[in-house]
Amino acid sequence: MTRLHFHSGKMILFGLLVLLLVAGCNAQPATTEPPPVFDTGIDPNAWAQVPAGSFFMGLHNHEKTIDYDFEMMVTDVTNEQFAAFLNDAIADGSITLGEEGVLGYYPGDKFSGYKHEKEIKAGDWLLFPVDHPDARIQKEGDTFVVKPGYENHPATMVTWFGAWAYCRYYGWRLPLEEEWEKAARGPDGRAFPWGNDVDKSNANYYKSHDPFERPNTVGDTTPVGFYNGKIYNGFQTMNSPSPYGLYDMAGNVWQWTGGVYEKTHLRYLKGGSFMDYAYNLRSWTRNSATPEYFSIAVGFRCVR
């Protein structure tokens, strides 16, 4: 009887180990194939006007007012646009190429020495890492070029400093959080740019089964303006702009905002990404990271 008990215990243990091994064997190497190429028809050089007025901000819908009109890019800055910036700005000396990547001057933040606050001093900061395997823009000789197929995808792996420098270079700026949220939600307090419900035809989020998701990868960006009602290789999208005509204000990539706050060095991101569940795409969701942070799931757009 004792032997039988011991045997049973061993069987359970063995069975569980087999299950765990089977689960572990699910891992497959990530693919390096180029992505499918689609022309969305949405112009990444277009701007949309956001009128002055009140809107609802945050989870609790606090009413706020922005008393000026502003324009925001209809899409995120694309790889093609960012590569052009790198080439032009390095050529004219606005930014430089360092060992770790592209560097640019930032005048620094006011430092309060508050708990967990990190000092952001004036000086050259990393804008974009060079030769990073996850970057979609690579340096070939003296020129930055986009990996084939990713030209109209949002520029990623850009630090907050990089986003700040890009917008500044062209005489624009990063949107403040309230500007971003108004542009995404419009005046009626909706949860997502297109309304109150979300499904895979509205936006690129984790496991939303878009044509760029490949097995055993974390997912991928979609071209800017992808969710515009077109059908791509049988994948039906719904036209999902914000009330002011902005695309990708939910999902695809988190977007840097420009606000610099007292007592913290953190910068804030909005919109959710292809790596997040759909609830993170709600317009008031607020992510944060250090300004040196870069990621395959972070991009930006500018306002003027």
């Binding site: 299950l19 572990g24 891992a27 190497p29 990530a30 990868t217 395959i296």
Partner: peptide, 23 residues
């Protein structure tokens, strides 16, 4: 693990967690 390389680890841990909790 980095974001771009995380999925095999994510899949494995989620599978183990799901199987364990299912049991």
């Amino acid at each position: 693990v980095s974001e771009s390389a995380q999925q095999p680890l994510v899949n494995m841990t989620i599978w183990i967690a799901d199987i364990g909790l299912l049991l």
